[in-house]
């Protein structure tokens, strides 16, 4: 097995969850209704927990660094998150559409990892599968409700989809070592996951009468997996690591 390739796969997955977890936590106290405030706070908690579980796999099975230091003291250029997760929370339609597109991507990724030859990822996938179901249930319910509501609601959801879709396609930016990971049955590769994801989101979007942009006509937001980020990541990392950097060796 190609250890570096596995480690890079885990890093990009964990960085996505860590960064989006922090973005989603920005809705705590600001949600449009109480239930949504709690939902985004809960999903943030899940995502940061999943990031920790992934960083721990690197630490325990691959000789990786301490998860806290890795999460909070790394420079932006060493992060492998996609651009979708870096964007500010914006308005609620944007955050909801991002959540829908991202969590469906997570669902197909973890579903595929149930067959992974890398045991720690396979075990984690079994654990997270049931939890992720609640994320997609939540997202689908709101996409359907707001898409079918017509008027301004429909227009805003369609506009959010048009904005988010190219960003979300960046989740599936091909990795340099994808072929090695496919050959070793670690995971099926980004291209396969992308196709499955398109099928799954299309099924929900059609029911909501929302028009999925033509994947051939958009430019996916690539670069994140190779350390090229939007200007939004650096300030977020500074905020996330501010307390730890005061005294990285402090015992809590």
């Amino acid at each position: 097995m190609n250890q570096q390739a596995i480690s890079d796969l885990i890093t990009k997955m964990a960085d996505d969850e860590l960064v989006l977890g922090h973005r989603n936590s920005e809705w705590t106290g600001l949600g449009p209704v109480m239930e949504e405030d709690i939902a985004f706070s809960s999903m943030a908690q899940d995502q940061i927990g999943h990031a920790l579980a992934l960083y721990r796999i690197q630490e325990e099975h691959m000789g990786g660094p301490d998860p806290d230091a890795f999460a909070f003291l790394r420079p932006a250029a060493e992060f492998k998150c996609c651009h979708l997760v870096e964007m500010p929370i914006g308005s609620y339609d944007f955050s909801l559409m991002r959540h829908f597109l991202f969590d469906h991507a997570e669902a197909v990724r973890y579903e595929s990892l149930l067959q992974s030859e890398f045991a720690p990822l396979q075990q984690l996938a079994r654990k997270l599968k049931g939890e992720l179901k609640y994320h997609t249930l939540h997202a689908d319910a709101w996409i359907l409700q707001l898409g079918r509501a017509g008027g301004e609601s429909y227009e805003r959801m369609q506009a959010a989809l048009d904005t988010c879709f190219p960003l979300a396609c960046g989740i599936f930016e091909p990795g340099e070592a994808d072929q090695a990971l496919i050959n070793d049955n670690i995971y099926p590769g980004e291209k396969v996951l992308y196709e499955r994801w398109l099928d799954n989101i299309y099924r929900v979007l059609v029911k909501a009468s929302l028009n999925m942009p033509d994947p051939a006509a958009i430019t996916p937001a690539y670069g994140g997996r190779y350390g090229q980020h939007t200007p939004h990541l650096q300030p977020l990392l500074e905020e996330m690591g501010a307390v730890l950097r005061l005294d990285p060796a402090a015992r809590w």
């Binding site: 239930e35 949504e36 709690i38 809960s42 939890e131 939540h138």
Partner: peptide, 13 residues
Amino acid sequence: LRSPFGATLCRAV
């Protein structure tokens, strides 16, 4: 079902 997320991760409302 009001929300699949509640006061703790293991509870729905």
